[in-house]
């Protein structure tokens, strides 16, 4: 009635289509590449217009953008630290610098948030590095853990001039 070759082709098409459909169903709702994003935005909530020079005790306004694609609800802790050009930081090692402030947020999967940041510096400093580190609160160990994401802003903090 029908050639065996034609039967085999139909069979192959049907099996491939079926396997693809089953794979889609099995993978639905699962995050294949989980990630968290940390961004530093300027005073206009955009990438750019970052301050380069600030006065001592002058308030600088920035924004932190946090995005959760981990496939689960995350408890993020963002530490603002003040380092210098010698401060070492990497994906595995957090900066050994004084913490200026800690921003904390709980974010469900697929959501993002923008946190306003207002900071002031009490001492003048050249080539200061304003570092933002992403930490997470680990619900299994019940401790905060460095999560390897970080941003930085180079600043010159100058003393207030009396005119």
């Amino acid at each position: 009635m029908i050639d065996d070759e034609v039967k085999a082709v139909i069979m192959a098409i049907v099996i491939v289509a079926g396997a693809l459909s089953i794979a889609q169903i099995a993978m639905s709702g699962k995050v294949s590449e989980p990630f968290s994003a940390l961004g530093l935005l300027g005073p206009n909530m955009k990438i750019g217009d970052y301050p380069k020079t600030v006065l001592v005790n002058q308030t600088i306004r920035l924004y932190l953008y946090i995005d959760n694609h981990e496939g689960r609800t995350m408890y993020y802790i963002i530490y603002a630290k003040l380092g210098d050009k010698l401060t070492e930081i990497s994906e595995n090692k957090s900066a050994d610098a004084p913490i200026l402030y800690a921003y904390e947020v709980i974010l469900p999967h697929g959501m993002n948030t923008t946190i306003p940041v207002s900071l002031r510096f009490s001492k003048p400093m050249t080539n200061a590095r304003l570092i933002f580190e992403m930490w997470i609160y680990d619900s299994e160990t019940h401790t905060p853990r460095y999560y390897g994401r970080w941003n930085q802003l180079w600043l010159n903090i100058t003393a207030t001039t009396i005119s």
Partner: peptide, 16 residues
């Protein structure tokens, strides 16, 4: 998944 599998078998039998 079982309906997709049944669909595969039914297609194989009835398509020709």
């Amino acid at each position: 998944i079982s309906s997709i599998a049944s669909l595969i078998v039914l297609s194989y039998i009835f398509t020709p």
